[in-house]
Design a protein around this nucleic acid. Sequence first.
RNA 1: AGCCUUAUAGUAUAGUGGUAGUACAACAGAUUUUGAUUCUGUCCGCCUAGGUUCGAAUCCUGGUAAGGCUA
Length: 368
Amino acid sequence: MQNNKRVLVAMSGGIDSSVAAILLKEQGYEVIGITMKTWDYASHSTSTGQKQTGCCDLDAFNDARSIAVQYGFPHYILDIREEFTTDVIQNFISEYVAGRTPNPCVLCNTHIKWKALLKRANALQCDFIATGHYAKIRHEKERYVLSKAKDLSKDQSYVLWGLTQDVLKKTIFPLGNLYKTEVRELAKQKGLIALSQKKESYEICFIPDNDYRKFLLQQNPALEAQLANGVFKNTKGEIIGSHQGYPFFTIGQRKGLGVTFGKPVFVLEILPQENVVVLGSEDELLESEMLITNLNMIKQEIVAPDFLATIKIRYRDFGATARLEHLSSNSLKVLFTQQVKGIAPGQSAVFYDNDDVIGGGIIQKITD
RNA sequence: AGCCUUAUAGUAUAGUGGUAGUACAACAGAUUUUGAUUCUGUCCGCCUAGGUUCGAAUCCUGGUAAGGCUA
């Protein structure tokens, strides 16, 4: 089986992308591996050092390369530190400073990874690009439709909502029809024992100790003074405590508030201008309408007003049913049929039609 | 100045004689390619000094502290 198609595979050094590359190779593709260097870990690591970071840590390069050597395909390193820093990290910081809750992985995928991959793929005359994401793509009615992975527990379609038609057209997800357990088993069969036992990656890849609050201060030392004297208020506007600065909170947060009322309290609202964080009960987190911007429609451009879509407002989310009301080509309103808890501006909203991704966008604000 | 009330973990509250529970917080672990949420577990306490009693957080006395009332 030789199909002569050339595919550029993004390899993080982890089990998923490694297996993806091997599968493509075995399917007869001409594989070129590429590992993206997103962040200079050496100069930012803490004393503890050895953290299993997210998608792209230090050992990643070696791990990816050894697979390439073993399977006889070329492997390159692509330095995207500059774009990663200016786009992903600066956005991450400015969003928090604006009192919002960013999702850097979404940004990284759509604005950095695929953009960089596509550019490189063109330069290397590749027909396709591939990654180890758990999601599926199919061609249907003139459109490329992104849908959930077969392994729903590992589905990553949520973080891929920003992929546009022109990149979906060229993208292959070799793991879309595999369960994670099968991928592990494949790695084992191929003798990649260490890889098959590698821990799942998680947390923000550019934050070594998982402490984003500390990271914000390190990146922006002036912040500390600016954020002094922050207060908590209740929904009546009464001051009920003090805090270290609004960027360190996110809507729906319960832990780490340092105040106690005998009942759990949650962050309801963040007011950056006043450095105020509004707290309240779990019930008060319930909302039923939100405005979405930065829209990217995938399955179809327009959704009928009476169509009931399933909306995910965070990565781990079963989804809630809602109608979509288009406002412009770049924005729409989501009207939930039942209230949902903890809508956080800055997070992504992804609209599903069963397993298909209709589209997605960024939550701009709660509108009711 | 006099009188009354109260004094239990970080906070708020149970427990009126047999060696302390609960909620919230904090911490840890699980989950997780974002932030959260969620789940599990852990730490921490009877204001102080005496007395009564076989035995006191629980009764009595003094002290201290807080709150209230009276002048």
